[in-house]
């Protein structure tokens, strides 16, 4: 959907409370397991920002926030990104993605919250697991929650 970014309703997103994170990385590892059935750093839709030695802990995860103005959605030249009806997640259709990485370039976050599966040559991103996000479920210390906007 190329075009000017417009506001698209956010229906739900992952909320991260850094003070509650124990750095266990279970979220990072369960994400690709749930989506691809294998585990690899580059397959996770969650990004690990490693802390420096002085930071003491081992870093923290970063998540797609399902932007109200989803630049990735508007940047895709082949309409591979769609808005899921049920969850409002900005999702990538792997059949349509041509691997051009324009969505990754368009993401306003650093690091970008879209991964690239180098083996399949396609972009991959958080789809809120269809409304049942496994990262939230595995988190042992309630650092993650799935926030849903109430239907009007």
């Amino acid at each position: 959907m190329s075009g000017q970014p417009q506001k698209i309703e956010r229906k739900g997103w992952i909320k991260f409370r850094p003070d509650y994170c124990i750095g266990c990385q279970a979220c990072l590892l369960i994400c690709p397991l749930n989506h691809e059935g294998v585990i690899g750093y580059d397959l996770s839709r969650i990004f690990w920002i490693s802390g420096g030695f002085e930071e003491v802990n081992k870093g923290k995860p970063a998540f797609c926030v399902q932007c109200a103005n989803p630049k990735c959605y508007y940047a895709c030249p082949v309409d591979a990104i769609y808005i899921d009806n049920k969850t409002g997640a900005r999702c990538i259709d792997p059949e349509k993605c041509n691997g051009c990485k324009k969505c990754i370039e368009a993401c306003p976050f650093k690091p970008p919250r879209i991964s690239f599966d180098s083996k399949r040559g396609i972009a991959i991103k958080c789809d809120l697991c269809g409304g049942d996000p496994k990262c939230v479920e595995i988190c042992p210390n309630e650092a993650l929650s799935y926030v849903r906007k109430k239907e009007k």
């Binding site: 124990i22 750095g23 266990c24 590892l29 003491v56 802990n57 081992k58 042992p140 210390n141």
Partner: peptide
């Protein structure tokens, strides 16, 4: 100081004992 943990996939000692001091 914060209660933090670090072992990978580790949820036990870290939740119960680990504390970070800066």
């Amino acid at each position: 100081s914060t209660v933090k943990a670090g072992s990978i996939s580790c949820m036990f000692c870290r939740l119960n004992f680990a504390r970070c001091f800066k």
